[in-house]
Design a protein around this nucleic acid. Structure first.
Length: 281
DNA sequence: TGATATGTTATCTT
DNA sequence: CAAGATAACATATC
């Protein structure tokens, strides 16, 4: 379930080790298909240098020498592993990049994906620009003001948790971090966006920043599938306030679990109340 | 055995 | 028609 901190963590590793390397060869495992076609992908990327590696929302982007891009989305179970070519084969390998490092050594970048919801795509400048326009600003963007964040919240009639996870409105947050941000901001996940005040928006933006930065510091959340580029687990699962917790860290009230927009949602019924509800305790 | 997990997108509904 | 809600996707794990 890679969200912004997990993708950030992987990219830190990829950037450090693979920037400036040359893609010698790409192979596809089994009948795995990439965009626009396996053939075009190989033609477009083989022989190219990876000029830059960066993150766009939850996408990993490689900028190539020829001005085109590789877009990798991990979706839920995607992994990008840096391995020595003779390292034992990884489970669920879908695409294998053989890379020539600047020091002449050869390594593999293995895109693995158990459930195959992830994506590997070869896109041109125009497609990259189109991709960029799909995403809202990120909570960590220092240029995102409270005023703009409040406007974004009001721009969709839904519950606040759903809004936090809407990549078109706000990029980077997924289920787990949205759940914890709402606990920090003391907002019930079902709170209508239309009732959020400017002050609440300010608290929520601060909460989003706090939990995302914490996730980055802890190198991501590992429940079952996310690992960094070397196969190591993250530690953020040990620090969540309500996500997958039993009791509230503040008041010890039993955490409630509901399905909201089809996603598992945890919250403290005592600390997190809707704007039109009165506190019971 | 079947319910569960989640990001994105296609499809359905209001 | 548009906005918002929901189903579908694939599969290991409990």
């Amino acid at each position: 379930m890679p969200e912004l901190p997990e993708v950030h963590t992987v990219i830190t590793d990829l950037k450090k080790h693979l920037e400036g390397s040359k893609i010698a060869k790409v192979t596809f495992v089994g009948s795995y298909q990439v965009y626009p076609s396996n053939n075009a992908f190989q033609k477009g990327v083989q022989g190219q240098k990876i000029k830059q590696i960066f993150r766009l929302a939850k996408n990993i982007i490689f900028k190539l020498e020829n001005g085109n891009y590789i877009q990798i989305h991990l979706a839920m179970t995607g992994r990008t592993l840096i391995r020595s070519p003779n390292f034992k084969r990884d489970k669920h390998e879908r695409v294998v990049f053989t890379l020539e490092l600047k020091n002449g050594k050869s390594v593999e970048l293995r895109f693995c994906d158990m459930r195959m919801f992830g994506k590997v795509r070869f896109i041109n400048e125009k497609e990259f620009e189109e991709l960029q326009t799909k995403y809202g600003p990120e909570p960590l963007d220092k240029n995102l003001t409270v005023e703009r964040f409040h406007k974004i919240i009001l721009s969709k009639k839904t519950n606040i948790k759903n809004l936090l996870m809407d990549q078109n409105k706000l990029a980077g947050m997924g289920n787990a971090y949205a759940i914890d941000a709402l606990w920090i901001a003391k907002l019930h996940p079902e709170t209508s966006t239309q009732t959020i005040s400017k002050e609440q928006a300010e608290n929520l933006l601060e909460a989003c920043r706090e939990i995302l930065n914490e996730g980055i510091k802890n190198r991501g959340l590992t429940i079952d599938s996310f690992v960094d580029a070397f196969g190591n687990s993250g530690k953020q699962q040990d620090y969540f306030r309500v996500y997958r917790q039993e009791n509230c860290k503040d008041c010890e009230t039993e955490i409630e679990f509901i399905k909201l927009n089809g996603r598992g949602t945890f919250f403290c019924p005592n600390c997190q109340i809707k704007n039109n509800q009165n506190r019971l305790v």
